[in-house]
Design a protein around this nucleic acid. Structure first.
Lengths: 347, 347
DNA sequence: CTGTTAGCGCCTTCAT
DNA sequence: ATGAAGGCGCTAACAG
């Protein structure tokens, strides 16, 4: 592995001259530059970023800490991050926490050891500990998708409360009263906010809140399946479900279908998070779509802006707009006479 | 930012002693260890991996070079990689090449500069240049999903030719004769092999190969859409389509639906690559499923095994089995009398 | 069981 | 426009 020394020797110059050519810094005579570049090419020299990073204290590297890259919402968000980062010459470390704060802590320390310049994170848990930790080690941080109990961070997210309010109001307008919510983990802002929106919509409509209709779980298909089963055992059965993310929605649909019920004839489903166009042939869910690519894109841009050092003013909370999509998964509730439709071919 | 020196001073020992505690190497008196650990905790010391990597010449970092993380096949594969890597204390750089060899080259040099220990790649292009480059810089490499024109690399992939043969034979058995193939880019082994399997099945069935039924494109939904439109303009219209990946299949379905045709009544579709269970409610495609998680998992394990240095013998090509799933997107061709079914509600 | 010395490859500083 | 010396933070090799 040739070093800058080898290149220097071959070009008949000092190492620092090679460094200057590499980094386009200082003055170099054209002729010298060419000698150096020739030597670099001949040796197949590739600079050592570790040594460079050690010296200049920045690595052109960021960490992306997600809960699960498997969810298309995060996949596409990650793509947004990666596009911006690579454009700016940064590389991205990918980390999946599965909502575990201890996994998250493990990744954060690993990233800090590797001296990433900054971290983009969808925080597991609801403390500011991770943010403080990152800052203590001189790295920048931008929070994505979720709130944290402090205004001293940059955050890129969508409005969960209002959007949920709209989704549930839509159900209420259709005539639903017994609406169950299948949400994410306690303490996670998106899970809690979506519940708040649900409650607010019911309260404003004069519908009493029944705690037995509220289900906390995880943001996974399995959890959605289990929560839906539990929800359907509660009588009189809810006529509508509000699921707090796409995976929960899919799990819920499976449970409903297994129970021999039709959507939307027997049960309506509305959900937070759409499935991407690229993956779905005939969109089915009445849903709130979050602009996941833009979220990743903006978050990465904000982080890079902070890293580039100029004074940027106070921390920002950027709330991106959501889109409300009414589709086939929601309809008026069944009349009490014909509570369930006859079993037909499921769609 | 405290360094190992600061910790040493505080604990009243030499830096190397701290190093030994950190790395669990050599002998340390319990009492000394505790003093050191206390100092580490008090200072909030986090080791500098750059310095360490510079010294020991390994970084516990790997690169994952994919064509597009947005495709669930790769997403899930990436998750398999990440799980194995993080388990072993490695971090993963994520890179999307979009099938561009120049982007790929950019990522590879960046990864080599950052002195990754190894690289997992789904190669864009069909030369061994990237592999040689990586090796020249002392990193290991494992190729995923695609063949390269050399036996001197580890490869983890599935059989494309045989699997395609099965898919097309299935169509032939149903009675289809005019079968079009919508495949990926020229020169990409998966695109070419899937075409080879298609041709072999036709030849064995005594069906003449019509070059006008062969469409090369990209592995994207847009390309699938365009290819399908072109395919449907060729008369007599094909009664079946074989799409070379999941995105192409989805694009093709959209084109078919837009043309007012029914699947499978008017046109059958069979495809390489299933969509993950977690994303699909009612699986629809007759498809070849590749075990994407396992591919990522095995590839990462193989790479880490090579990195751990023990003699491992020659390069290996590991071919993982595929699964053949017959579902609703394929059926017998329409009879010539009633070439097209009447337009009904699309599914 | 612990410490000293030296150097990994690069760039900052100060000279020339 | 170019170079020499020194150090970023860590650990290998060798002492003791």
């Amino acid at each position: 592995m040739p070093t800058i020394q080898d290149v220097a020797k071959r070009a008949g110059v000092a190492p620092i001259t090679v460094s200057r050519v590499l980094n386009h810094t200082g003055y170099i005579r054209e002729e010298t530059r060419q000698k150096v570049e020739a030597a670099i090419a001949e040796l197949g020299y590739v600079p050592n970023s570790l040594a460079r990073g050690l010296r200049i204290k920045q690595t052109k590297t960021i960490g992306l800490v997600l809960t699960d890259i498997t969810n298309p919402f995060f996949t596409i968000l990650a793509r947004g991050v990666e596009d911006v980062a690579s454009q700016a010459g940064f590389n991205v470390f990918l980390c999946n926490t599965d909502e575990s704060e201890s996994k998250q802590m493990g990744y954060l320390t690993a990233l800090l050891q590797k001296r990433v310049d900054g971290i983009l994170m969808v925080p597991a848990g609801s403390t500011t500990v991770p943010v403080d930790l990152i800052r203590d080690h001189g790295a920048e941080v931008v929070v994505i998708d979720r709130r944290l109990p402090t205004s001293q961070v940059d955050v890129i997210r969508c409005e969960s409360i209002d959007s949920s309010y709209r989704l549930v109001s839509h159900l209420l307008e259709l005539g639903h009263v017994r609406i169950t919510i299948l949400t994410g983990p306690r303490g996670v802002s998106t899970a809690e906010d979506r519940l708040s929106g649900y409650k607010a919509a019911l309260v404003d409509a004069g519908v009493e809140i029944d705690d037995a209709l509220i289900h906390y779980g995880r943001f996974t298909q399995e959890s959605g399946y289990e929560m839906a089963q539990k929800a359907m055992r509660y009588l009189p059965m809810p006529t509508a479900m509000f699921t707090a993310n796409n995976f929960i929605a899919i799990g819920a649909v499976k449970a409903v279908q297994e129970a021999g019920l039709q959507i939307p004839e027997d049960i309506s489903i509305v959900t937070f998070d759409d499935l991407p166009n690229s993956l779905v042939i005939n969109p089915f869910f009445t849903a709130i779509r979050q602009p996941s690519y833009e979220m990743g894109h903006s978050a990465a841009e904000l982080l890079l802006a902070r890293l580039s050092g100029g004074e940027m003013g106070p921390y920002r909370e950027i709330i991106l707009p959501t889109e409300f999509l009414v589709r086939a998964s929601s309809a008026a509730p069944p009349t009490s006479k014909s509570q369930f439709t006859r079993k037909r071919a499921t769609r």
